[in-house]
């Protein structure tokens, strides 16, 4: 039996647009708060969303973020059209980064995004095709279902 779906939203992310970077995560925070998600789980999900959104902005041309909330969990899937990740295991290592100096000046690009997304998720998965794009999936289980 699958859990009842409470909400499904899809958001567009523009690659290389640093001014807008983080807007989608900000919207997701509001949507989850309005749904009555408790602060601790909301915070974890929004951290995942923000780091995922920054990665799309920094590395890809465009992306979409799909948020699905059920009675049991919150699911976030971020899919982009971009260069892809050749070595996912390496990319998941703390400190590994291909970010430019410009990105570092913006406060990102220290190789802490993916590890922190994984840490905040109950389930975490990356799929990538070099030259095509990347999908990052995160699940956070809600209280009473942990």
């Amino acid at each position: 039996m699958t859990a009842m779906e409470l909400l499904r939203e899809c958001y567009e992310i523009q690659g290389k647009n640093f001014d807008k970077a983080g807007e989608v995560s900000g919207e997701i925070k509001v949507v989850l708060r309005d749904l009555g998600i408790d602060a601790a789980h909301l915070r974890r999900l929004v951290i995942v969303a923000f780091e995922a959104e920054m990665n799309v902005v920094m590395y890809a041309q465009r992306g979409t973020m799909t948020l699905i909330v059920t009675e049991e969990d919150i699911n976030l899937e971020t899919t982009d059209e971009g260069p892809g990740i050749p070595d996912i295991e390496l990319a998941l290592q703390e400190g590994y980064s291909t970010a430019s100096d410009e990105m570092r000046e913006m406060g990102f690009g220290f190789g802490m995004g993916l590890p922190n997304m994984k840490k905040n998720s109950d389930e975490f998965r990356i799929e990538s095709n070099v030259g095509k794009g990347t999908s990052v999936f995160s699940k956070i289980r809600l209280p009473a279902h942990e």
């Binding site: 983080g22 913006m106 220290f110 802490m112 995004g113 590890p115 922190n116 840490k119």
Partner: peptide, 24 residues
């Protein structure tokens, strides 16, 4: 000055000190 570092270590309700002044 690293936003990812703040996101990884803050637990909420801290004072944040940074030299980075952009929207992020």
């Amino acid at each position: 000055d690293g936003m990812s570092e703040i996101l990884a270590f803050a637990k909420s309700r801290e004072l944040m000190i940074t030299g980075l002044t952009n929207i992020q």
